[in-house]
Design a binder for these strands. Structure first.
Lengths: 224, 224
DNA sequence: CCTCTGTATTTTGTATACAATATTCATTAT
DNA sequence: ATAATGAATATTGTATACAAAATACAGAGG
């Protein structure tokens, strides 16, 4: 209710895209909480646009799994159940393994060195203690691998899955006890990709996702 | 241009959903061809609704990968390039393997016997020579496996991937030479699930998808 | 006091009107 | 003849108006 959502009018994009990005960010940041209703008129007046782009943005959020709409009842921010999160993580594990496998085959030397850079930057980011900075550094690390697959549709799906986890993953990154584990896991992933060893890479990423899964599921159980 | 699209007004659904289903079907049937423009006013008058539900349906098609829109230019039916199809198939192979693996772990006896039924029905359908009947029987067979995963999000993704392939897969099913191969592959998949042998199941489905991949890619190359 | 019902209000669903942009095609100048 | 220009047209982008359904709440009846 106390949302002061604001549009990024910089880019010259259709309003539906601007609204979509704005709402998406708000959901991921937690400004719009799971279960919160997305009322068209309210959002329209808050963002200073008409209902039309709001509606189209909601349709897009819906497909991303970030919103759910019941006919004649309206839309709300998607609530993630434990089961839902397990389902997402199950898929993510498989696609992340695929991504690592493809990256082993296709990664260029330049991408490998970028991956090492991002790995180091991530390690440094942990010292800041700033969760948002850490999360972004982590995303950047994995994005190098995603891009290296050369499969934009896969990248898109992985980004989408990550979004659905992101909100809950933040909690995991707040606990400094996990940092040494994360560093080791990233190192293992990097090394196996460097050696272009598919099996090692798949195992390394599987462990990484599994540890996330444990942590994320705990957060959901807490919130109930 | 000669489309006589008609709405299924049976169900009491929001028009956007009815329009979405109608357009989706039309694209999958090939009535709306890749690259064909989706003009709002034209579609609206053809379907007897206003532009609003058309626009929302297009947003949904867009997220399914069945339509592409360029700002200020409009939407068109997604063209599938060879590269695009390879990307889709790469993902599909991974998720179909995951589905088989999960089905091995979770499939009930009842689902197993349904799978056998669908396998037999598929074999019979081949004798009709009716491609649409065959395609549907094939879909039904695989749907049993998908449902057995108990993961609705995965089912959704697999259906979505299947849609993108469907239009091109039809050609493969027109050639009766392929029928014995399909029967054998389905049998292998069924047997490995029956034995709950994950590795066998993953291998069987991988072969199945790979053979599809070869055929589908040929179709695309033909069409250019 | 509780429940049911009916009305008022809110909210979504759909249609239409208007604005902005892109495309097309004819015209003109080189 | 070809290329550039500009007006006419077509199409999308956005806002608003109206209709239909759901929700909330108050009042009547048990």
């Amino acid at each position: 209710m106390t949302e002061d959502l604001k549009l990024n009018m910089n880019a010259y994009l259709p309003l539906r895209d601007v609204v979509f990005n704005t709402l998406r960010e708000a959901i991921l940041r937690g400004d719009l909480k799971p279960g919160e209703r997305l009322m068209e008129i309210q959002l329209a007046s808050q963002l200073g646009v008409s209902r039309t782009p709001i509606r189209e943005a909601i349709r897009m959020l819906e497909q991303e799994g970030l919103a759910v709409t019941m006919p004649r009842k309206g839309a709300e921010v998607a609530k993630m159940t434990l089961k839902g999160m397990e389902d997402v993580l199950e898929i993510r594990a498989a696609l992340d393994e695929l991504a690592c496998q493809l990256a082993c085959e296709r990664m260029t030397e330049e991408q490998l060195s970028r991956l090492e850079d991002k790995k180091v930057i991530f390690e440094k980011s942990l010292q800041t203690g700033n969760v948002k900075v850490i999360a972004e550094a982590d995303v950047n690390f994995h994005d190098v691998i995603y891009d290296a697959t050369g499969n934009p549709k896969l990248v898109n799906m992985l980004n989408n899955l990550r979004e659905q986890i992101y909100r809950y993953r933040i909690e995991y990154l707040k606990n400094a006890d996990n940092y040494p584990i994360l560093i080791k896991e990233h190192e293992a992933i990097y090394q196996s990709l460097y050696n272009r060893n598919k099996d090692d890479a798949k195992e390394a990423i599987a462990i990484h996702v599994e540890n996330q899964a444990i942590a994320v599921k705990e957060v959901i159980v807490m919130q109930g």
